[in-house]
Design a binder for these strands. Structure first.
Length: 800
DNA sequence: GTAGGGTTAG
C-alpha cells in the first residue's frame, strides 16, 4: 500500500522550475555548482550608492553592500558589485571567496583566489581556509596541494584556522596520512583541530582511530562538544558497536545537546547502522520538528535493515506531514527498497521523478539506479544509466560490473573488468569481490589463476571476503587442492570461509570430507549459520549420504535453533528423490512450511527423470513453468525424457513451445584445458586440428565399452532412426573431450572437463566405463556439481 | 569578515 502511494506520488509530480538557484540562503553541503556567465553581466542597479560622497565613503558603502549580499546568499548581485569595485583590499576578495564556497560554487571560489593572486593581492589567513575547503569539496588533490604549497610560502603553515581546514580537506580527499601530518605538525591545537581529526578518521572509515583520538583529546584536558559527539557516533556506526553507541547516547542524555536535532539524527543513524531499528524509530518518533535529513536517516535505516515496506511507509508519512520534500538523498535511500521487494515500477517512477526534478546527473543517485536495475534484472536500463553518466567513479564501475555478474553475463562483466584495469583506474577490493563470482561462473582454471595472481600482486589477499571467493572459484574450476591451500593459509577463517570449503568438497562429491570439515569447524568454536547447513546438507545430498543428511537436518533446528529454509528443504528432497520413493518426495513438498519454489520442483523433476516417471515429471515441469524465469533446462529434460521412450510427437510439441517463447536450446559444450589453453568441443564437433585422431580414439573406446559409433537401430522406423542418430550421445562433446584428454594429458593426471550444462546419463555411463578400461581418473564438472569418475565409479553414485 | 556538524551508491 505504502509503496503504491509512493508510486502515485512520483508519477503525479509535476515539474517546477527553481528560479532562485543563485539567490539561495547560505547553506552547507552543496553539490558543486557553476555560475552562468550571464550573472556577471546582468542588469543591476545598486540603489544605495550616493554619488556625492567621497571615494572612501563610497568604497565603504560598496563593501558593506557586498557583505550583505554575500550574507543573504545573493552571489549574483555580490559578483556584479565586486566587478565595479577597486580590488586592492584583501578583505573584499575574502568576502567573495567565502560567499562562493559557502554557496557551493567551489570551482569559482578557487578561480577567484587565482585571480586575486594574479592581481597582486596577498592571500591571508582568512583567504586560505575557504580556498582549501573549496579544493576539498571539488575532490581536487592537485589543486589542494598547490594551495597548501602557497600556505607555506605565505608563512601560514602554523595558522590554527588554516591547519584545521587542511585537516578537513585531506580527510575528504581520503589522504588521512596528510591530515595526520598537518595535525601533528601544529604548534597549538584547539577543540576544532581535535574535532577535525576525529571526524577525519571517521570520514576515511577508521572508527577505532576516531575513538582513540577522542580519548587522547580528553587526556590533554579538552572537553568535548556536540561535534565531537556526532563524530563519535559515526565511529560507532562504522564499527557497528552498539555498546559504545549506547554509552555515547548516555552522554548525550546528560549533556545540553540532548534535544539538538542534529545529534538526534546522528543517534538514529547510529542505531540504524547497528541494526537496532526499534531504538532508531523510538528516537525518531520523539523528535517534534523533523527536517528532511532526519526523515532521510529513518528511511535509510529501514532500507539498510532490509525493511523495504517500512521504508516506503516512512516516506509516505513524510509526504503526509507536508512540511518537507524529497531530495536526492531520499531517493538514494528509497531505491534499494525497490530492489529488495522486486518493485520495478516504483523504481522506474523514482527514476522519472529524479529526471523531472533535475536531480540528474548525480553520481550517487545514478550509481544507486544502476544497482537497483541490476538487482531487478533490468540490465539494459542499468547499462543505459551507466552510459549516460558524465562522471564515474570506482563505485559506479563496480555497480555495473556487479549488475552483469548478477544477471549471468559473466563474459561481459569480465570484458568490462579488463577494460577498467587496462584503461581506467585501479580496481578496489569491492571490484575484485564483484568480479570473482564471474570467474567462478566461467570456471576456467587458467583465467582463474590469472586473477588470483593479480590479487596477490595487488595485495588483496588479506581480505577475507576475497579469499573466500577465491576458494569457491578454485573449487568451481575443478582445482580442489588449490581451494584447500588458500583455506589453510587464511589467518582469520570466518564462518563464510568454513561454509565455502565445506561446499567446495560438497560440489566435488566428497561428502565425508565435508562432514569432517564441519566437525573441525565446531572444534574451532565457529558457530554455524543457516548457510553452513546449506553447505552440509547439499554435500550430503550430492554424495548420497542419506543418514548423515537427515541427522544434520534435525541437528540444525534442535541444536542451533536454525529454521530450515527452502535451500535446506531442497537438499533433503534431493536425498528423497535419490532413494526413488517419489510419493514420499511429493508428500515432503506438500508438508513443507514454505511455498515450493522452482528449485524444489526442479529437484522433483530430476528425481522423476532419474526414475523415468514421465507423469510426475510433467507435474513438476508445469510448476516450474509457472514460477521460473528461464525454463530452457526444464523443457530440455522433458524433451529428453520423451525422446528416450520414442514419444517424438511430444518432443516436437516441446520444440514448438520453446520456439513460441523465443527460447533456444542451450548449445552444450565441454572445455578441457591443455597447456594453459582451453579447448572447447560441441556435440559432433569436427573442427579440432586433430579431429581424425580424436574420432579414432573415440571409436576404439566405444567398441571397448560395447557401443558402436554407427549402429542401426532396428526397433525404430526410419524417420525415428534419423532422429535417434541426431540425438545420439555417441559424439557428445564430453566424449570428444575425454578422447582428446586421453591423447594429450600425461598418464597419471586426471582428465578434467568442464561442461556448461548437466551431463547426460549415457555419457555418464560411458565415462565410468572409459575410466575403468583406461585406468584414468576422469573429472567432469557440469553446471552444478563435479563428477569424480574412477575405476568405473562416480562420486555422485549415479544420481544428479 | 575566518575553521569543525547530522542523511548519500558497490
Amino acid at each position: 500500500m505504502a509503496m503504491l502511494s509512493a508510486l502515485t506520488f512520483f508519477s503525479s509530480y509535476t515539474f517546477q522550475v527553481n528560479t532562485s538557484m543563485f539567490k539561495t540562503k547560505s547553506t552547507k553541503n552543496h553539490q558543486p555548482k557553476t555560475l552562468p556567465k550571464s550573472s556577471l553581466t546582468d542588469k543591476y542597479t545598486p540603489q544605495s550608492i550616493d554619488v556625492d560622497v567621497s571615494n572612501a565613503r563610497k568604497n565603504q558603502l560598496l563593501t558593506r553592500n557586498l557583505v550583505s549580499h554575500v550574507n543573504s546568499g545573493d552571489i549574483e548581485s555580490a559578483l556584479y558589485l565586486f566587478e565595479r569595485m577597486p580590488k586592492s583590499d584583501t578583505f573584499v576578495w575574502n568576502v567573495l571567496i567565502r560567499g562562493l564556497t559557502d554557496n557551493g560554487f567551489f570551482r569559482e571560489a578557487v578561480d577567484l583566489y587565482y585571480r586575486m593572486c594574479f592581481s597582486g593581492v596577498r592571500a591571508d589567513n582568512f583567504t586560505f581556509p575557504f580556498v582549501i575547503k573549496a579544493c576539498g569539496e571539488l575532490c581536487d588533490l592537485r589543486e589542494g596541494e598547490k594551495v597548501h604549497a602557497k600556505v607555506y610560502k605565505a608563512g601560514l603553515n602554523f595558522d590554527l584556522y588554516v591547519c584545521n581546514a587542511l585537516i578537513c580537506m585531506y580527510a575528504k580527499l581520503g589522504y588521512i596520512d596528510c591530515a595526520e601530518r598537518v595535525f601533528l605538525g601544529m604548534e597549538s591545537r584547539d577543540l576544532v583541530s581535535w574535532n577535525s581529526m576525529i571526524s577525519a578518521y571517521a570520514i576515511v572509515g577508521d572508527g577505532w582511530s576516531s575513538l582513540l583520538c577522542i580519548k587522547k583529546m580528553q587526556s590533554v584536558g579538552i572537553e568535548h562538544d556536540k561535534f565531537t559527539l556526532i563524530s563519535s557516533l559515526k565511529a560507532c556506526s562504522l564499527l557497528c558497536s552498539l555498546l559504545i553507541g549506547k554509552e555515547i547516547h548516555g552522554q548525550v542524555i546528560k549533556s545540553t545537546f540532548r534535544l539538538d536535532v542534529v545529534v538526534q539524527t546522528s543517534l538514529i543513524d547510529m542505531y540504524g547502522k547497528c541494526c537496532h531499528v526499534q531504538y532508531a524509530y523510538n528516537l525518531f518518533n520523539r523528535i517534534p520538528e523533523r527536517g528532511i535529513i532526519t526523515w532521510n536517516a529513518m528511511i535509510g535505516c529501514y532500507a539498510l535493515n532490509l525493511r523495504p515496506l517500512e521504508s516506503f511507509s516512512c516516506f509516505r508519512n513524510m509526504q503526509k506531514s507536508g512540511v518537507v520534500h524529497p531530495d536526492k538523498i531520499t531517493l538514494i535511500n528509497l531505491l534499494p527498497s525497490c530492489a529488495q521487494v522486486g518493485a520495478l515500477l516504483p523504481g522506474k517512477s523514482i527514476h522519472g521523478f529524479a529526471i523531472r526534478k533535475e536531480f540528474l546527473p548525480h553520481l550517487v543517485l545514478e550509481t544507486t539506479l544502476i544497482d537497483m536495475y541490476g538487482k531487478l534484472q533490468e540490465l539494459r536500463l542499468a547499462e543505459q544509466v551507466f552510459d549516460q553518466m558524465n562522471v564515474k567513479n570506482m563505485i559506479s564501475w563496480n555497480a555495473i560490473i556487479a549488475a552483469y555478474v548478477q544477471n549471468g553475463q559473466s563474459r561481459q562483466a569480465l570484458k568490462l573488468f579488463s577494460n577498467l584495469v587496462y584503461k581506467h583506474c585501479k580496481p578496489d577490493a569491492s571490484t575484485i569481490s564483484s568480479i570473482l563470482p564471474a570467474y567462478s561462473d566461467i570456471a576456467s582454471l587458467t583465467e582463474g589463476k590469472q586473477i588470483h595472481g593479480y590479487i596477490i600482486q595487488n595485495e588483496f589477499s588479506a581480505n577475507n571476503y576475497i579469499s573466500n571467493s577465491i576458494i569457491y572459484m578454485y573449487a568451481r574450476c575443478g582445482d580442489l587442492l588449490s581451494a584447500q591451500q588458500i583455506f589453510d593459509r587464511m589467518y582469520n577463517k570466518d564462518v563464510i570461509s568454513w561454509n565455502t570449503i565445506i561446499m567446495a568438497y560438497g560440489i566435488h562429491g566428497f561428502g565425508k570430507e565435508s562432514l569432517e570439515l564441519f566437525c573441525r569447524m565446531r572444534e574451532n568454536n565457529i558457530e554455524p549459520n543457516a548457510s553452513t547447513f546449506v553447505s552440509v546438507l547439499s554435500s550430503c545430498s550430492i554424495a548420497g549420504l542419506d543418514e548423515e543428511g537427515w541427522k544434520h537436518f534435525h541437528l540444525m533446528k534442535r541444536e542451533y535453533g536454525i529454521d530450515p529454509q527452502i535451500e535446506h528443504y531442497g537438499s533433503m528432497l534431493d536425498l528423497l528423490g535419490r532413494k526413488g520413493d517419489l510419493d514420499k518426495a511429493k508428500e515432503f513438498i506438500h508438508e513443507m512450511p514454505l511455498a515450493p519454489t522452482a528449485r524444489i520442483w526442479g529437484s522433483l523433476l530430476a528425481a522423476s527423470r532419474h526414475h523415468r516417471n514421465i507423469e510426475l515429471a510433467e507435474v513438476a515441469a508445469n510448476h516450474i513453468l509457472s514460477l521460473a524465469h528461464d525454463n530452457t533446462g526444464c523443457y530440455i529434460v522433458l524433451s529428453n525424457m520423451y525422446a528416450e521412450v520414442g514419444r517424438w510427437e511430444d518432443v516436437e510439441r516441446i520444440k514448438d513451445l520453446m520456439s513460441e517463447q523465443g527460447m533456444a536450446k542451450t548449445i552444450g559444450f565441454s572445455d578441457i584445458e591443455v597447456n594453459y589453453k582451453t579447448i572447447r568441443f560441441v556435440n559432433h564437433d569436427r573442427f579440432h586440428l586433430e579431429t581424425d585422431r580424436i574420432y579414432d580414439v573415440l571409436s576404439i573406446l566405444l567398441r571397448q565399452i560395447g557401443e558402436e559409433l554407427f549402429v542401426s537401430l532396428q526397433k525404430f522406423r526410419p524417420v525415428d532412426l534419423i532422429r535417434t542418430r541426431l540425438n545420439s550421445p555417441k559424439c557428445h562433446s564430453v566424449r570428444l573431450a575425454i578422447s582428446y584428454g586421453l591423447i594429450s594429458i600425461s598418464i597419471g593426471k586426471p582428465i578434467v572437463i568442464k561442461k556448461n550444462i548437466r551431463i547426460c546419463r549415457d555419457c555418464h555411463d560411458a565415462a565410468k566405463k572409459i575410466s575403468d578400461i583406461t585406468n584414468r581418473e576422469i573429472v567432469v564438472g557440469d553446471s552444478k556439481i563435479y563428477h569424480h569418475i574412477k575405476d568405473g565409479h562416480c562420486s555422485c553414485k549415479d544420481y544428479w
